[in-house]
Computed example of a mutant assay.
Amino acid sequence: MASEAEPRPLGMFECQLCALTVPYSYVGQKPPDTQAVVLLEESYIMKDPFSSDKESISAFPQEIQQDVEKRKGGSKKSSSHP
């Protein structure tokens, strides 16, 4: 049984520079399951082909990681002052 987190691929994306092929689940400017995200150009939405099945949040810059944590509601602000 397929997980809801991994939508069924619509097709295969092929990079014109390196010939990497990856199944994609959406093409457009407003990805499904997002409320406030509108992309400036049509984009392919796919699972990160370079990560394992675990979350790959640690690969993003610290600012992005903090923003993701805030949006998840898991942000813990420290009350200590330097």
Rank of each mutant, 00 (worst) to 15 (best):
residue 57 I to M: 06
residue 66 Q to R: 09
residue 79 S to C: 05
residue 67 D to F: 10
residue 16 Q to T: 12
residue 2 A to Q: 09
residue 23 P to L: 01
residue 21 T to R: 00
residue 20 L to E: 05
residue 25 S to L: 10
residue 47 K to M: 14
residue 4 E to T: 07
residue 57 I to C: 06
residue 35 Q to S: 14
residue 78 S to E: 00
residue 74 G to L: 12
residue 44 Y to A: 13
residue 53 D to S: 15
residue 45 I to G: 05
residue 11 G to R: 05
residue 71 R to I: 10
residue 10 L to Y: 07
residue 74 G to V: 08
residue 69 E to A: 06
residue 52 S to M: 08
residue 79 S to R: 07
residue 23 P to G: 03
residue 23 P to V: 09
residue 14 E to Q: 09
residue 15 C to S: 06
residue 61 P to T: 01
residue 77 K to H: 05
residue 11 G to Q: 02
residue 15 C to N: 04
residue 82 P to W: 06
residue 34 T to K: 08
residue 47 K to V: 12
residue 66 Q to W: 04
residue 61 P to A: 14
residue 27 V to I: 15
residue 62 Q to Y: 11
residue 10 L to V: 15
residue 56 S to R: 02
residue 54 K to V: 11
residue 80 S to G: 02
residue 46 M to C: 13
residue 45 I to H: 04
residue 13 F to E: 00
residue 19 A to K: 04
residue 65 Q to L: 08
residue 78 S to T: 00
residue 65 Q to A: 05
residue 8 R to S: 11
residue 48 D to Y: 07
residue 36 A to I: 10
residue 51 S to L: 08
residue 25 S to R: 09
residue 57 I to N: 04
residue 30 K to A: 09
residue 14 E to K: 09
residue 40 L to I: 07
residue 42 E to K: 15
residue 39 L to P: 00
residue 19 A to C: 11
